[in-house]
């Protein structure tokens, strides 16, 4: 069973249905006590970074998530759920994140993109491929170069690049997935990435402690 945190920042139906489709039971909660008791925590999310942090704070979930990660239990972040792990984000004004991973969330270089021969649009929206950098149980059964669905204007820049499990090229190479110890997170939406995406949800759902 996985526990998906509902903090009012995204449509969770697809995430829940995605897990269920591959036989993983889901508990959806915004209650900090329920989240604190979770074995596996999933933090999805869309929208503005600062709104997400505010909602997590209002629901008293910040420490719950930090404690969960520090206790060594599996965590899966999706989209903003990846970005929130970082020290801070440049979205609107500099906003502090959960600071699990040292580094910053920054915007794609708009002006540089506009000057390119084939101008790149922001948000980075659509299907793009993974360049897998290291082995992670979440990418089990997924070939290098597999396409996933992205929608985002900001990307993460970890100080320690060894946390990066995969990168994706959009004008620049950026970290599209992190994986270390019990922490897994992806910038793309596995719940919108057809059967390959569901594989990631399944891999997370069936993680055993000796794998991490």
């Amino acid at each position: 069973m996985v526990t998906v945190i509902d903090y009012g920042m995204s449509n969770l139906r697809s995430v829940v249905k995605g897990f269920e489709n591959v036989g993983v039971k889901v508990c959806l909660t915004s209650d900090k006590r329920v989240a604190a008791a979770a074995d596996k925590l999933v933090l999805p999310g869309q929208g503005a970074f600062s709104d997400c942090m505010k909602n997590l704070r209002d629901l008293d979930l910040v420490d719950v998530i930090k404690n969960h990660i520090h206790s060594g239990k599996p965590y899966l972040g999706i989209c903003i759920g990846l970005q929130l792990l970082f020290t801070e984000s440049e979205e609107f004004e500099l906003t502090k994140g959960l600071d699990i991973i040292k580094g910053r969330v920054v915007k794609f270089p708009e002006e540089e993109f506009a000057r390119m021969e084939t101008k790149l649009k922001i948000p980075h929206m659509g299907w793009n491929s993974l360049d897998i950098k290291k082995d992670t149980p979440l990418l089990k059964g997924i070939a290098d170069g597999t396409y996933f669905y992205f929608v985002h204007s900001f990307y993460v820049k970890p100080e320690d690049e060894s946390v990066t499990a995969a990168t994706t090229n959009y004008g620049i190479d950026f970290t599209s997935m992190v994986s270390f110890d019990n922490v897994f997170a992806c910038q793309f939406h596995p719940e919108k990435s057809r059967s390959e995406g569901l594989k990631i949800l399944k891999n997370f759902g069936s993680l055993t402690l000796h794998q991490i």
Partner: peptide, 8 residues
């Protein structure tokens, strides 16, 4: 549809 098809 959203229960069975996982794409935008």
């Amino acid at each position: 549809t959203a229960e069975q098809v996982f794409m935008p």
